[in-house]
Amino acid sequence: MIYYVEDDDNIRGLTLYALRQQGIEAEGFSCDSEFKAAVARRVPDAVLLDIMLPDTDGLEIMRRLRASTETATVPIMMLTAKDTELDKVVALDGGADDYLTKPFSLMELTSRCRALLRRGGMSRQVSDLLSAGGIVLSPSCRTCSVDGKDVKLTLREFDLLEYLMKKPGVVFTREALLRSVWGWDFDGGSRTVDVHVQTLRQKLGERSSSIETVRGVGYRFAAQDA
């Protein structure tokens, strides 16, 4: 999945159309607030950023992504009208993987996007696994094992466990988990989280205590010793 942040509706729409026509999954956002909410729900495989945005400078968004452990290795391409050598140097030195100036060729863009996705894939192969207390999760392969034995999880069970394991020790309310794992448009109640935690614990067996209930608040991942 590629996320594209661009406030010009025409450019954003045309670019997304071109990427999707080439079989590349892509989603667009007109401002940083929309983009930030999307990243909280799902970390993209690559990001395309305009520099001049209405609410937050694209370079600042890039710095924020690079500072977060969740998005530090996500490939980033700047798509911008700023075309001086200094602009490119600042962006590349600041953490951008690629830089393309407007107007750009859609054919060249899709080619560079494929390269970004390949680069991101190689990065995930190195650092993809989440491992704690006998539980091993591979987000890219969507596999889970407990003490060396494969465990079959549903889509939501996997996403819930992944989200908790990425932030061990952090306590999340049921409402926060609903927003981050199920999405803003989910109309179910917080009881949904309790049900999924219960079934997830059953599948984790002796490692079920890794998902702790914080009374009156919600849940956190606190892996037990192996």
Results as ranks from 00 to 15, higher is better:
65 L>Y: 03
78 M>I: 15
134 G>P: 09
105 S>E: 00
59 L>H: 02
84 T>V: 08
60 E>T: 13
80 T>W: 11
130 L>M: 07
109 L>G: 02
63 R>Y: 11
63 R>E: 15
106 L>C: 05
77 M>G: 03
138 S>L: 07
119 R>G: 09
124 R>A: 15
136 V>A: 10
100 L>K: 07
56 T>S: 14
78 M>P: 05
96 A>K: 02
62 M>S: 00
126 V>K: 03
129 L>N: 05
59 L>N: 08
86 L>I: 15
124 R>C: 08
137 L>Y: 03
77 M>F: 03
94 G>Q: 02
136 V>D: 07
130 L>Q: 09
94 G>D: 06
62 M>K: 01
68 S>Q: 13
112 R>A: 00
84 T>M: 13
74 V>C: 00
70 E>M: 12
118 R>F: 00
65 L>T: 05
132 A>T: 01
68 S>N: 15
120 G>M: 08
115 A>C: 08
65 L>S: 09
100 L>P: 10
137 L>V: 02
76 I>T: 03
124 R>Y: 12
82 K>A: 11
79 L>A: 09
81 A>R: 12
129 L>T: 04
87 D>T: 11
92 L>Y: 08
84 T>P: 12
110 T>R: 04
110 T>G: 06
85 E>R: 04
103 P>R: 00
115 A>Y: 04
75 P>I: 02
91 A>C: 10
127 S>T: 15
71 T>C: 01
115 A>T: 13
110 T>A: 02
69 T>C: 10
127 S>F: 10
52 M>S: 14
52 M>V: 15
75 P>L: 04
70 E>Q: 15
134 G>Q: 04
89 V>H: 10
71 T>V: 02
73 T>F: 13
112 R>W: 07
77 M>V: 00
78 M>R: 06
101 T>N: 02
53 L>M: 13
117 L>P: 10
73 T>E: 15
86 L>D: 11
134 G>D: 07
84 T>A: 12
66 R>E: 06
95 G>L: 04
71 T>W: 05
74 V>T: 03
127 S>Y: 10
108 E>G: 01
74 V>R: 04
136 V>M: 10
85 E>S: 14
116 L>N: 07
65 L>M: 14
137 L>D: 09
65 L>P: 07
136 V>N: 06
91 A>G: 00
132 A>L: 07
125 Q>Y: 02
133 G>V: 06
58 G>P: 08
72 A>L: 05
